[in-house]
Amino acid sequence: MEPAQIIMLGIIAAGYLTAISAELIAGRIQHSQRPRRDMLFNLAAILTQPILTSVVVASAGAWLARSLFPTGADRLIELPFWPGFLAIFLLNEFCHYWVHRAAHEWRWMWKLHRTHHSGMDMNASLIYRYNLFWPMIVPQTWVGAIVMYFGLYQEFLAAAAITYLVNVGTHLSFRWDLQLRQRFPATEPAWRIIEKIITLPDTHQAHHAWGSKQAHPNGNYAVTLFFYDVLFGTAKWPRARQENFGLPISPRLHWAEELLWPIVRKPLLAKQILPEGGTPKPAAPNATAN
């Protein structure tokens, strides 16, 4: 592995560790509604992701690339950095938008994606709260395996690092975007432009919210480049704090199905289980169902 690649991987790790440390110091994670359940999902994801993505998906992607382009190995290694980086970044974000949108529109994909949305609090740990099979359909690993086969290692890692850090930033419980807008009102015209291009906590947390006019669970799909939502008509800008996160059925979901669907299938629990240390929130008719 080259020094530049090690540096980019270090930036990714440092970004997450900084964010999760800030959340822990502020008590945002341990004082959340279901900290033990969320920690279980996080540990399961962190322990299994290297196998599912680095081995299974990456190997399958590399095999697919070799099969389709048998003479393409390292063919683009001499390509200048910026054209390769921009092409990968735009392609990956475009693919993610449509896979993410399909996960909200197609029932079988929603079952895989639902675990990420059943978390009842926003914080950095939410990015690792997902069904264990979800990483197998996320476009980034497939795109990465193919473009690295062509020799675009640094370009892909740079694109992946930006996507990852933005993803961490939009899941934080600290609403840094609103704080900056309120503290420096003269910058509002610039924010009105930025929010149409880049995904901010305001738009992504609306995607995780339900039960209020600020919620937009079936839209705001872009992970980094929000202009795809603008382009395809799924954008909404609340410009306010969201109230309820998760799903109305979150307390009734069985942990095993959330982690292992479709291998494990469980009916909704008959009675609503209270969040750890909290009280259940009322259901809302406009939230994504089961």
Rank of each mutant, 00 (worst) to 15 (best):
A73P: 00
R66H: 05
P83Q: 11
F85K: 07
A60H: 07
P70Q: 12
S67E: 13
G84K: 04
R66C: 04
S59I: 03
R75P: 00
F69K: 10
A87S: 13
L64V: 02
F85G: 13
I51W: 00
E78R: 12
S59G: 15
T53E: 15
I88T: 08
W63E: 10
A58M: 11
I88N: 04
E78A: 15
F69R: 11
L86M: 11
A58Y: 03
V57A: 15
W63N: 07
V56R: 07
D74P: 00
P83V: 13
A58V: 04
V57N: 02
F69E: 11
P80M: 12
A62I: 08
A60V: 04
P83C: 12
V57R: 01
R75W: 14
I51L: 13
S67V: 07
L76A: 05
R66L: 08
F85E: 08
E78L: 12
V56P: 05
V57M: 04
A73Y: 08
T71V: 11
L76Q: 05
L68E: 03
V55I: 14
L64P: 00
L68A: 04
S59M: 10
A58I: 02
L86H: 06
I77H: 00
G61E: 01
V57Y: 02
F85I: 03
W63A: 15
I77P: 00
F69H: 08
S59C: 12
F81D: 10
A58L: 11
L68V: 01
S59V: 05
V57K: 00
I51D: 00
G72M: 02
R66D: 08
L68S: 01
A87T: 12
S59E: 09
W63I: 06
S67P: 08
G72P: 01
R75N: 07
P80G: 08
A62H: 14
L79T: 11
A65L: 10
A62E: 15
D74C: 00
L76K: 04
A58C: 05
V56K: 07
P80E: 15
A73H: 10
L68P: 00
L86E: 07
L76T: 10
V56I: 14
P80F: 11
S59Q: 12
A60D: 06
S67N: 13
L52F: 10
I88F: 07
W82L: 11
